[in-house]
Design a protein around this nucleic acid. Sequence first.
DNA 1: CAAATAATTGACTTTTACGTAAACGCCGTG
DNA 2: CACGGCGTTTACGTAAAAGTCAATTATTTG
Lengths: 128, 128
Amino acid sequence: MRDYYTITELTREFGISTRTLRFYEDEGLIHPLRRGRTRLFRPSDRVLVRQIMRGKRLGFSISEIRQIIQMYKEPPGEVGQLKMMLARIEEKRGDLRQKRRDLEETLAELDHAEESCLERLVELGVTT
Amino acid sequence: MRDYYTITELTREFGISTRTLRFYEDEGLIHPLRRGRTRLFRPSDRVLVRQIMRGKRLGFSISEIRQIIQMYKEPPGEVGQLKMMLARIEEKRGDLRQKRRDLEETLAELDHAEESCLERLVELGVTT
DNA sequence: CAAATAATTGACTTTTACGTAAACGCCGTG
DNA sequence: CACGGCGTTTACGTAAAAGTCAATTATTTG
């Protein structure tokens, strides 16, 4: 496990630009270390970027991703806070379950569309 | 099954604005009938809107949703077109499978975060 | 029939998530 | 040492996906 990654290493790994990574830092999603002015990304930062990319692929906004990331952090020390966090976790889980339903339905419809295409090919006498 | 829905009925049902529905029409995602200038949404339009909302929740862009919607339509008559459509279906399926992996991982992490919170509550002596 | 209600179009604005460009710092190499 | 390559900041620009507002036109209803 590497100590630090440079910004360009991460841009290559995740297929994003330096601008994007700096933007995520501005948004408070990541907090890489500094040596002088240059950023040093720790493995933990890299994990965060991975989580950000996952969130993006799922269509979450930056602020939603921020919320989700905060849930992975050390749980807070106060009871009220903890209960709030549990509620928000449950909420996000609801979002994800909805997405899963959407996903399964869309997949099913794609299957159906594919079948129609295959049937049509058979009608046309194409040997698949 | 109703013959037609008004635009406001659909806005209420899907929690979107009239502007949004007109926008989708401008984008060529739906094609409601007209009586004079007022739009008449058929059940099939309603189904389309439902598919659009699903796509949106999954983070697909309008043009991706347009592509997906086109796959549900009557398959084209020409062999080349059919094969292209099959390829695009397979591609979208790939996207969806990636989303599903992302989703399961995020759900797992939320489970983990929840457990941490619950443990912390127990430490604090809170009877859940 | 007048007033309220609902719908339309068109123009302009906003928000999100970056892209792009300018101008500069630091560092190793030929 | 100057040059290329990588990195930085600051500032402005932009595309997508609507939201907002104004002016206008039906439609319904008391």
